[in-house]
Computed example of a mutant assay.
Amino acid sequence: MEAQNQQQASTAEIAKKEPTQSERFMAKVVSEFGSSVGEVALTDFQKRLAQNYFISIDGILRSTEEKRIKKSEQYRDPLPVTWANVNMEKLARDVVAMARIGFDPGQPNHINPIPFKNNNTGKYDITFIEGYRGLELKATKYGLDVPDHIIVELVYSTDTFKPIKRDLNNKYEGYEFNINNPFDRGTIVGGFYYHSYSNAPEKNKLVIMTIKDIEKRKPDHASPEFWGGEKDKWEKGKKVGKETVEGWYEQMCRKTVFRAAFSDITIDSQKIDDDYLRLKQMESEYDVAEVEREIKENGNKDIIDITPRGEEDASAGMASEHASDDVPTTAPQPGGDEVLF
């Protein structure tokens, strides 16, 4: 009995010394901060960001592993989606770059982690996809000529919208926009965004998008939970037909116009730093991983179905371009221009 107690005490002591996943993660991030900025100590803000990244990644790993286990053995990847199988060196470098840009996974629609299996390393790489608020942050920080205000609106069939283009009679671009029936605006016919410069109105810019333009930007993997439409209906593990889902069509249309508005800001080459280059590299890696996923999905079906954990809905499907800004926390309010910054 005494020997058994001693063994249990020894096991408990070893377990106590074994660093937790959170401690391992923080140690890697601290080390990477130290190698990149010349000092190991993190500010309180950087520590909070690192904790937010750990919590966010831990959540997506857990949900993805649950989905892996639920798959039949025939289609299940043998490698568990756990911290032990994550490429920690790459993750630490990426987290440092994202944190220094200012992306905070604790904020809605900033940045979203997505795990992909790297067959070359036998590990899972965590890539990051910026949400529409993250896109705003990046454009504001690295933009060449950032507008003072950016206005984004959808136009409905009962609204009155008149664009004013710059010509001999008008010094500046502008528009007239009236919401005639705020509680029943009809169907969406398009949208627009407006770049406004307070001290240089001659640079004001109006871009109009028809509903066709908006829907052309709908991601190939858009989920019915977001854009609406039909999806497979399952009962007791068997597909029994189709069901119609209402989704969040209006919000998705608005976010599409929003993304176009900030993507239209030219990046200033003089502001590009190592963190921005790292971000572009991750975007490229994500594109490559998506192509590989497509090949596997349409080939032998032997693939882990990776679903990103959106800020508002962890169980809905991936919508490629909108991976991290799918279901909004609050619906856009009808009426009035929204000044974003």
Results as ranks from 00 to 15, higher is better:
residue 175 Y to H: 05
residue 143 G to H: 07
residue 163 P to F: 13
residue 135 L to P: 10
residue 164 I to W: 06
residue 152 V to M: 07
residue 145 D to Y: 14
residue 173 E to T: 11
residue 143 G to K: 04
residue 153 E to N: 15
residue 163 P to K: 03
residue 149 H to A: 14
residue 136 E to V: 05
residue 163 P to W: 13
residue 137 L to C: 08
residue 170 N to I: 11
residue 138 K to C: 02
residue 164 I to D: 07
residue 112 N to K: 15
residue 172 Y to H: 05
residue 176 E to P: 11
residue 144 L to R: 15
residue 151 I to H: 09
residue 132 Y to H: 07
residue 122 G to P: 00
residue 139 A to C: 13
residue 151 I to K: 11
residue 114 I to F: 01
residue 113 P to L: 07
residue 116 F to H: 06
residue 117 K to I: 09
residue 146 V to F: 12
residue 113 P to C: 04
residue 136 E to W: 13
residue 128 F to Y: 01
residue 116 F to M: 05
residue 133 R to V: 04
residue 125 D to P: 04
residue 168 L to N: 15
residue 137 L to A: 13
residue 178 N to I: 01
residue 135 L to M: 15
residue 156 Y to S: 07
residue 159 D to L: 00
residue 132 Y to T: 00
residue 157 S to Y: 06
residue 165 K to C: 00
residue 157 S to G: 08
residue 167 D to W: 08
residue 156 Y to H: 15
residue 142 Y to S: 07
residue 120 N to H: 10
residue 138 K to R: 12
residue 150 I to M: 15
residue 151 I to F: 09
residue 170 N to M: 10
residue 123 K to W: 10
residue 138 K to Q: 05
residue 148 D to L: 14
residue 157 S to E: 06
residue 140 T to A: 13
residue 177 F to L: 01
residue 153 E to P: 00
residue 125 D to F: 00
residue 157 S to M: 02
residue 126 I to G: 06
residue 172 Y to P: 04
residue 118 N to C: 06
residue 140 T to F: 02
residue 133 R to A: 04
residue 174 G to K: 01
residue 167 D to C: 12
residue 165 K to L: 08
residue 138 K to V: 04
residue 177 F to K: 09
residue 124 Y to F: 15
residue 176 E to M: 04
residue 126 I to Q: 07
residue 125 D to I: 00
residue 178 N to A: 14
residue 131 G to D: 01
residue 143 G to C: 03
residue 121 T to S: 06
residue 146 V to P: 06
residue 161 F to V: 00
residue 162 K to N: 11
residue 154 L to K: 08
residue 150 I to V: 14
residue 176 E to H: 12
residue 130 E to T: 08
residue 118 N to S: 08
residue 126 I to R: 02
residue 135 L to N: 15
residue 131 G to A: 02
residue 168 L to E: 13
residue 130 E to C: 02
residue 169 N to C: 14
residue 175 Y to G: 00
residue 113 P to E: 03
residue 177 F to E: 05
residue 168 L to D: 11
residue 140 T to E: 10
residue 142 Y to G: 03
residue 144 L to K: 15
residue 171 K to Q: 09
residue 139 A to F: 10
residue 177 F to Q: 02
residue 146 V to A: 12
residue 141 K to M: 09
residue 113 P to F: 02
residue 128 F to D: 05
residue 150 I to Y: 14
residue 176 E to C: 06
residue 176 E to N: 14
residue 159 D to I: 00
